[in-house]
Design a protein around this nucleic acid. Structure first.
Lengths: 207, 207
DNA sequence: GTCTATAAAGCGATAGAC
DNA sequence: GTCTATCGCTTTATAGAC
């Protein structure tokens, strides 16, 4: 990928995190990337094209810090702990993370009115769910697949909701993280008891 | 309240649901309300004032269809059923409901960048949580208050997340409702076992 | 590929009559 | 309270030189 292209996308992420998709002005973005306005149009066609590419760019960048990188110096990590870590990763008061979360949340919200962003979001969401479902499966290997997927979907969607409220500022970081952890616990417990399946056994089995 | 004022606010909700906050053009809104542009400014000062008033208007309207109105002809409703009904109310493919949800979600999302919307959102969110916590308390009267509130917060935030994905169109209505129901079940079960509290007893009591 | 300059349109906001 | 008319800035997008 061209170096300028990348610079523009990085600037776009920054500006979206600062002003929102609604507040994104091609001129501000160009200044931020130290590039002329015309170059932006040259590379991305129009505003909508720019948004599409930025969405993908941000998604890939999130992948990079979400996947991989265990926290310690190589001790094999408990599955439950890894699950929590992954889900809590987005709820951190660290500038880079916050920027990515803000921009991603903004693009997700604008997708309600911009259908061309949907496919990308659907895909990214699907991958997230599969990964979380995998981790849940390692925590409770006896749980049926459908239960794992449902639980994962709920956790991922909850995270999105928490993220929005956290970014708005009506939910302090610590509280958001606590709620997320609580949900993980509740879902894992639920898996063990067979709760939350389409057809469920009301007083589930014991492992 | 003035009749025209109300007409303008109704039109604003409709236009926001159709085009988003960013897509709201005072001119379109005025046309929709069959009113002149100048009248909008006369009543609400400026664009921002209009948005503030619209947020409150939409919130009150949501209250009206969320609270009250039991479904049957007066059979006393099971608390658990009422809880589910309340939480599922927003996830319906009914034009009026969808319009309100869309506009509300849009305003919530824009609050990340418009601090003057926060107070209203914080309040509305708080009331929601209290109501859901109350219902949870009726389902499980022995659960401690802190657990009720945490569970309620998770349910409300999950609903917001589901709503967004549902409105984007990446989550079909039925699936969203199923996930919501599953979460209610998981949380209620969790209450019974003392799961998800700050300090929790790992193998909870039995009722 | 990248820039400067400019067209073209959009849109928020106000003035002033009724 | 409500309208018509209009101002003037902002913002997207393109033309054309290098």
């Amino acid at each position: 990928m061209n170096e300028r292209r990348r610079a523009i996308l990085e600037a776009a992420a920054r500006v979206i995190a600062r002003r929102g998709v609604r507040g994104l002005r091609v001129e501000e973005l160009a200044a931020e990337a130290r590039v002329s306005k015309a170059l932006v149009y040259y590379h991305f066609g129009d505003r909508a094209g720019l948004l599409r590419h930025t969405l993908r760019f941000i998604g890939e960048r999130a992948d990079r810090y979400t996947r991989g990188r265990p926290p310690g110096r190589g001790e094999p990590e408990d599955s439950l702990r890894e699950l929590e870590r992954r889900l809590l990763l987005e709820l951190q008061d660290v500038p880079g993370v916050r920027e990515n979360s803000t921009a991603w949340g903004e693009l997700r919200a604008s997708a309600v009115f911009e259908p061309e962003l949907r496919e990308e979001l659907r895909q990214a969401g699907g991958e997230w769910v599969r990964e979380i479902a995998d981790l849940l499966g390692r925590v409770d290997p006896s749980a049926p697949d459908a239960a794992l997927v449902s639980a994962a979907e709920r956790l991922v969607v909850l995270l999105e909701g928490l993220s929005t409220r956290w970014l708005i500022g009506v939910l302090p970081t610590g509280h958001a993280r606590e709620l997320m952890r609580g949900a993980v616990t509740a879902e894992v417990e639920g898996l063990g008891r067979g709760v939350g399946l389409p057809e469920r056994c009301p007083v589930g089995r014991v492992r």
